[in-house]
C-alpha cells in the first residue's frame, strides 16, 4: 500500500491518554445528554424515535470508523491509531445495546411477547438482532487476556465484524420506507472498506472453499 508520509506518526503516552479520555467523554456524554433531553421531552416530537435514530446511526458510524482505523494506520502510517480501535468498537457495541434497550423499554414498553414476535417476524429486526449478537460476542472476547488465550481463533471470530456491519446496514436500509435514502452512502463506504481488504477476504473465502472440496 502507498503511504502518505515518509515517516510514521507517533503519539506519546500523555496525548494518547487524553485522546482516550476525550473519546470516553464524548461518547458517554452524548448518551447521557440524549437520555436527559429525552426524559424532559426535549428531543423533538417523538423522543423515542429520536433516541432510536441517534443510537442506531452512531452504532453504525462507530462501527465503520473502527473498521477504517487499521487501513488508515497503515496508509498514513500512524500505528498508534490502532490503540483506539478496541475502544471505538466497544462504543459501537454500547450504542447498539442502548438502541436495543430503547426499543424494548420505550418503543414496545416491555411488552415481551410483542418484543419476541417482532424479533422473529420482522426481517429488518431479525437482521439487526443478528448483528447485535455478533457485536456482543466480539465485545465479550475483546480483552487482551482472552485475545491471547484464543490465539488464531480470535482473529477468525473477529472477522465476523464484517458480517455484523453488513447486517447492520441491511437493517438500516430495511427500516426505511424507500431505498433512496442515507443508507446508500453508508453502503458505498462499507464497499470501500471491504475493497481495501479484498485480499484478506478472498483468502478467507478460498480457504473455506478448498476445505469443503477436500472433504
Amino acid at each position: 500500500m502507498n503511504r502518505l508520509l515518509s515517516r510514521p506518526l507517533r503519539l506519546p503516552a500523555t496525548p494518547r491518554r487524553l485522546t482516550k479520555a476525550g473519546i470516553h467523554l464524548l461518547a458517554t456524554g452524548y448518551l447521557v445528554a440524549l437520555f436527559y433531553w429525552g426524559a424532559t421531552d426535549n428531543l423533538g416530537a417523538d423522543p423515542v424515535k429520536a433516541l432510536l435514530h441517534s443510537t442506531g446511526t452512531w452504532a453504525i458510524n462507530l462501527l465503520l470508523i473502527s473498521l477504517s482505523i487499521s487501513p488508515l494506520a497503515k496508509w498514513l502510517p500512524f500505528p498508534d491509531l490502532m490503540r483506539f480501535r478496541r475502544l471505538v468498537g466497544l462504543y459501537s457495541f454500547t450504542y447498539a445495546m442502548v438502541h436495543f434497550f430503547s426499543f424494548c423499554a420505550f418503543e414496545l414498553q416491555f411488552d415481551w411477547t410483542l418484543i419476541a414476535s417482532e424479533i422473529v417476524e420482522r426481517p429488518y429486526i431479525t437482521v439487526g438482532f443478528a448483528a447485535l449478537l455478533i457485536l456482543s460476542l466480539l465485545a465479550a472476547t475483546s480483552t487482551t487476556p482472552i485475545q491471547r488465550r484464543m490465539g488464531p481463533a480470535w482473529q477468525r471470530l473477529h472477522n465476523w465484524v464484517y458480517a455484523a456491519a453488513l447486517l447492520a446496514l441491511l437493517h438500516y436500509t430495511w427500516s426505511l420506507k424507500t431505498v433512496w435514502e442515507e443508507p446508500v452512502f453508508y453502503w458505498l463506504i462499507a464497499a470501500g472498506l471491504l475493497y481495501l481488504r479484498r485480499d484478506k477476504l478472498l483468502w478467507v473465502v478460498r480457504k473455506k472453499f478448498k476445505k469443503n472440496l477436500a472433504r
Binding site: 421531552d41 428531543l43 433516541l51 420505550f106 410483542l114 417476524e121 420482522r122
Partner: peptide, 19 residues
C-alpha cells in the same frame, strides 16, 4: 400487519418524554 410494523398497537404522541 405491515411487513415492518405490527399494527396491533401504536404509540400516541402527546406531551411527555421517554418515560
Amino acid at each position: 400487519a405491515h411487513p415492518r410494523w405490527s399494527q396491533a398497537s401504536e404509540r400516541r404522541i402527546t406531551t411527555g418524554g421517554l418515560f
